[in-house]
């Protein structure tokens, strides 16, 4: 069995994040209190999701350039994992919001943007399901994937910044880096981003291998 070093790194980092994230010191903030620890889980999940979607789009571009079916497999599995991260991000976010903002789904542009983004990618999966011919499905869904990513970015990065948002870094609020994260928290936060992204890549890799085996068996 092939052991990849990054899988070990991912396990080590995530263990560190979970333990040190829960027992390490955090600054005392009003309203947030101990729930500030959710920064280690909620935010890295979204970062990971965006990185995974970007990778998925890159593989779609590669598929359109050289037409290898394998790239399409990788693209769809990255999108799947990203959707999973998105759902987890929503779940952690709404738990957090119900304690700090008093509402599990406040009317916030960032939340709504992400909800629409999820619709975009669910539509991607439905689009994939509506083709019988494999080559055709691969090409057209690759085209849609690139288009969807180009729409997704303004939806979550540009539009929320134009209006008032509860999220830090939007609507004139300073980003979290500026005030409520001290250097101690950063020591957990940045590894958490890397760890969750690696975990996403790992999940994707397993699913891609499964798909490859299935493709060989069917052929």
């Amino acid at each position: 069995m092939r052991i990849a070093w990054w899988k070990i790194v991912s396990v080590v980092i995530l263990t560190y994040v979970i333990f040190w994230g829960l027992i390490g010191g955090v600054p005392r903030q009003p309203i947030l209190n101990e729930s500030i620890r959710n920064v280690y889980f909620h935010v890295p999940l979204w970062f990971g999701m965006i990185i995974l979607l970007l990778t998925s789009m890159i593989f779609s571009v590669r598929y359109l350039r050289n037409g290898r079916p394998d790239d399409d497999l990788v693209a769809v599995e990255f999108a799947n994992t990203a959707i999973l991260f998105g759902i987890l991000g929503c779940a952690t976010g709404s738990t957090w919001a119900s304690f700090t903002w008093g509402d599990p789904w406040p009317n916030d542009p960032k939340l709504n943007g992400v909800a629409v983004g999820m619709l975009l990618y669910f539509a991607y999966l439905i689009l994939r399901g509506s083709f019988d011919d494999e080559q055709r499905r691969a090409r057209i869904s690759a085209v849609y994937n690139i288009f969807a990513f180009a729409v997704f970015i303004p939806l979550i990065f540009i539009l929320p910044r134009l209006t008032d948002s509860l999220h830090p870094g939007n609507g004139g609020n300073p980003a979290f880096g500026q005030y409520d994260m001290d250097s101690q928290m950063r020591l957990v936060f940045y590894p958490a981003v890397i760890g969750f992204t690696l975990l996403g890549v790992w999940i994707t890799e397993v699913r891609v291998r499964l798909r490859r085996i299935r493709a060989v068996l069917e052929a």
Binding site: L119, F131, R136, Y144, F147, A148, V151, P154, L155
Partner: peptide, 23 residues
Amino acid sequence: GIASKAENSATLMAILSFPVVLP
């Protein structure tokens, strides 16, 4: 163009375009 290549293009047109035109 994308929807016309698929089978149930009317539904697909709607679900693909709503999120895309939203911003």
